[in-house]
Write a protein that binds this DNA or RNA. Structure first.
Lengths: 157, 157
DNA sequence: TATCGGTTGTTATGTTGTATCATCGCCCGA
DNA sequence: TCGGGCGATGATACAACATAACAACCGATA
């Protein structure tokens, strides 16, 4: 399980690692991590909170004046297709993927108090999902598991 | 587990039951199922597919000319608060709750081919969710579980 | 009958996401 | 070297989803 939020950490390092991994994965896959896409990925990673597309746009526009909504949505779509970010449906917002490169299903713990989202990977949970769908004869394409509440730190405070 | 979609059924009866139950629950709870709210509930129930708020608005406006977006969103908010409908976050759409009256967590199987959504109630899945959150010390307030794919019928066809 | 709270009316606006077509730049084959 | 094709980006417009803010109404009740 990743835990990006519970402890202070060197977030610049975090971002660098994510970008480096992204570059490697895109090279391997022979897809293009263009400057715009890379910049959008970096913007998303700068926050541990899911960020909205229009927030990304505002930031991107500082360095790229031609940026418009489609610019951002195209980059976000690309990054999602490559598994480099996830969309949090219940927030209409996007989050860097801490498990890029591993095939995995994403499950999120979203704190309503501090706004952070933590990606968890839980095999038992995944197995339970599979069992439930199998029973219905349902062919799964995408799983959205988003748990909202209060994180440990916010419960303390 | 409910199964609203796999078989043909008397959908009028379905709707009637839902409305009757809703009236009873609202009476018990001393909250008002006003004509607008009841009409919106009926509109949502007329489809087994999740319906968007503006689709509800279009339908509602046929019998209620003053209807505007806030009219619909207020009714939807009320119905969600009473557990009579659910919002499908990944579709920005709403679905009648087949388990109104029982406290339950909602989990959905959403067919991308035919558009129907089936609400499932699966204790094992729920337990796995609880275990995962407990491990993180996370206090759950809301669980969103939405599985998209292809339903059994659409796989056959 | 005065007023209080909950519901609805009304207007406007905010937020999120797409459609469409033009243009650019690069690679590759003739 | 030319030019055709294709993926990426530019640019404009619009569609879809949701809320803010304040006014008006209406029934219950002191």
């Amino acid at each position: 399980m990743t835990n990006q939020t519970a402890l202070p950490h060197d977030h610049e390092h975090c971002i660098d690692s994510a970008l480096t991994l992204a570059r490697e994965l895109c090279t391997e896959r022979a897809v293009k991590l263009t400057p715009i896409r890379e910049k959008v990925l970096e913007i998303v990673w700068r926050s541990h909170k899911p960020v909205g597309a229009y927030d990304v746009l505002d930031t991107l526009a500082r360095s790229h004046k031609a940026a418009r909504p489609p610019t951002v949505y195209r980059a976000l779509d690309f990054l999602m297709a490559e598994g480099l970010i996830h969309k949090i449906e219940s927030l209409n917002a996007y989050l860097g993927c801490g498990e890029a490169g591993h095939a995995h299903e994403s499950q999120f713990l979203i704190c309503r108090t501090c706004g952070t989202a933590e990606e968890i990977v839980d095999g038992a949970l995944d197995a339970a999902l599979d069992a439930a769908t199998k029973r219905s004869g349902f062919a799964v394409e995408r799983k959205v598991v988003e748990i909202a509440g209060k994180c440990r730190r916010c419960q303390m405070a």
